[in-house]
Design a protein around this nucleic acid. Structure first.
Lengths: 137, 137
DNA sequence: GTAATCCCTACTAAATTGATAGGATTAATA
DNA sequence: TATTAATCCTATCAATTTAGTAGGGATTAC
């Protein structure tokens, strides 16, 4: 299941991309338009900023803006920041690999084999999908 | 993240498929070989039986067996039983569709669009992957 | 009749999720 | 310079889910 965090994060990014101007977008505006609890959203945008996807401006007339063109923001990056590893098990994760305690031999493990295929197919989607694609109406 | 339930379930099914005989396989044997807490595994095999994937025989020399040939047991079915809906959000689920409270228009929703693609690509993997494929060494 | 096996229900501890609360910091502007 | 509007940060919390345990009931082979 997709977490609310990810869902809200994607919606917020889309909102910012659609607004499109060079003026920063306020959390309050996004929260209101997308029906997201504002305080919760604050935290989400903060992680996106710390991950380098968003930039921010403090104080009056402050807000958030994209650090790159929407068409340059890949879903792989966004999803990893919001939802964590794309792989469903650590033993097939490219970026967060971890050996299973149980499994003596990964190559003989049926779960491993299956999850590699799922990972690759999901990755293929996220790799050629950008925020630009998402924000197209 | 894949739940332990699913992971254990897949390993157990693979074990049964590999044993391959017509004699039922005991929970204790699977638990020992695959390093799964036996009582936990009992419950998992029970759900697989109730879903019609496994059959069981009670009493001495009882155990679990596959209701179909490994090559006829599709991962779509197994995964739905163990892990639940394949879609990451209910609004793109084929079997468990549910409208989002927030979203006024699904077609305009960026999350919806993205998750349909993820669902389709995952489905493609599960649809042409059977237990037979998994149990190949 | 006894031992081995599946079957069923209830319980529990730990982790995660989805928030909320309260204020600190920063910047524009009247 | 004081005010206001924003982001930033930490702590806390309730509800849910997950992973597992406990205890025994029902069934069957021998």
């Amino acid at each position: 299941m997709l977490s609310k965090k990810t869902k809200y994060g994607l919606k917020a990014l889309t909102y910012i991309a659609r607004t499109g101007d060079d003026v920063p977008v306020q959390v309050s505006a996004i929260a209101k338009s997308e029906q997201i609890p504002q305080k919760f959203l604050e935290g989400i945008l903060l992680t996106l900023r710390k991950a380098g996807i968003l930039g921010s401006k403090k104080g009056k007339h402050g807000g958030y803006y994209l650090r790159s063109l929407p068409s340059d923001i890949k879903m792989t990056d966004v999803m990893r920041v919001l939802e964590g590893p794309i792989a469903m098990v650590p033993c097939v994760s490219l970026n967060y690999y971890e050996k299973c305690d149980d499994c003596p031999d990964e190559h003989a493990c049926s779960v491993h084999k299956l999850m590699i295929e799922v990972r690759d197919s999901t990755l293929k989607v996220f790799r050629n999908k950008t925020l630009g694609d998402l924000s197209q109406v």
